Simulated scan of single mutants.
Amino acid sequence: MKNIYRSTLSALVLAAPLAAIAQTDYQTDTLPRFDDRWYILPFASYTWADENRGVDDGFGGGFAVGKPLNERLNLELRMTYTDLASQDDAGGDFRIGDLGVDGLFFLSRGRFQPFLLAGIGIINDDFECNISEVNIGNCKSGSGFSFMAEAGAGFVVPITEYASLRVDGRYRYDDNAARLIDDEDFGDWIVTAGIVIPLGSRAKPAPVTRTFELSADALFAFDKATLKPTGADRLNTFAGDLNQVNFNDIQVAGHTDPIGSEAYNLALSDRRANTVRDHLVGQGIPADKISAQGFGKSQLKVTPADCAGAKSREALIECYQPNRRVEVTVEGMVEK
């Protein structure tokens, strides 16, 4: 049964980062979600104890203090306490307290924040023998400090500016320097759940202006201004990200390659820009804050001279691909 628990925990822990990666097919990263405030973390835990301890699995709890250092890394001081009773009153009880420093490596800081963790520290094992006779075998009461190392993974889900849900699973190595029970070291599996509580107010980011380039070939068929299904999905995701921020104004600019007349390309780029504008408005972007304009082939990224070596029309179209684009400029952008 314990192996089933361990296998299930491992699967959940490993699935968390993979689920996050699977959900990032399109991500604009419109604003950094990095929060550099100190935080505290009260948490509950459940321990699947090493069989060598001779105790049942059980609940515990702890407390952590941490600080994000950059977009990827948090450092955390963590304390955990668990009281594990003996199996069928044979052997003894373990009261386990550990203190460690963990490093948390975040794979993303979005609405779902998976991370990997590793840490080292000290652990105190306080063993109380339940057998009435003294010194039967190695069953004798005692306590001692040992080296501890941990590794695992988890995720954070922000709820409000002042609270986030956090879940992680970890393997804890205890070298059992005091040689309690026997000479074997211990390896426990632990899952925790708690609430991250940032301290103080989050500094408001300064408004920024950013331009997002969307490939016209991803949005439209060649020489068309009607969105492809995949193009509509892409804009839906983009609009969802825009709805997470405040902004002053959005300009949508359409651009084409130099194939065809100036008038034709100007009209095509204008239709494409307005198609993008109308779709974003349909996804909740205020119509009075978004405008559209086509620029045709007036702002080429790849010139005819760059594609002079193209041997066919298909090769020329492929060479000119970077020119076919829609640029969305968002002004005065600030996270809500």
Rank of each mutant, 00 (worst) to 15 (best):
G309K: 01
S312D: 12
V326W: 01
F295L: 11
A273C: 05
A292R: 01
V328W: 00
I285K: 11
K289P: 04
D270A: 01
V302T: 14
Y264M: 12
Y320E: 09
G284F: 06
V328T: 02
Q293I: 05
S298V: 05
L316I: 11
V281R: 03
F295R: 06
D288P: 05
K297T: 06
G309D: 15
A305L: 07
D270G: 01
F295K: 07
R313I: 14
S291V: 05
A287K: 05
V276E: 05
G284V: 06
G294N: 02
G282R: 10
A273N: 00
A310M: 06
V328S: 01
H279I: 04
A267V: 11
Q283M: 13
G282E: 12
Q321R: 15
C319Q: 05
A267L: 11
L268P: 04
A308S: 15
L300T: 05
A273L: 04
A310P: 10
L316R: 15
L316D: 08
G260K: 01
A267N: 15
G296Y: 04
T303S: 14
N265W: 01
L300F: 07
S291W: 02
Y264P: 03
S298L: 06
L280M: 15
G260I: 04
T275L: 02
A273V: 00
S269R: 00
G260V: 07
V276P: 01
L268H: 02
S291F: 03
D288F: 13
A287T: 09
A315I: 09
E262N: 07
D306N: 15
K301H: 12
K289L: 13
K289I: 04
Y264A: 13
V326Y: 02
N274A: 15
E327S: 13
R271T: 12
A263S: 14
S298N: 13
Q283H: 09
R272D: 06
A308H: 04
A308M: 07
V328H: 00
R272F: 12
A292T: 03
A273H: 01
L268M: 11
I317C: 10
N323K: 06
A308N: 12
S298I: 00
S312H: 07
G260E: 08
I290E: 04
A267W: 02
C319S: 08
D278F: 06
G309A: 13
N323I: 07
E318T: 08
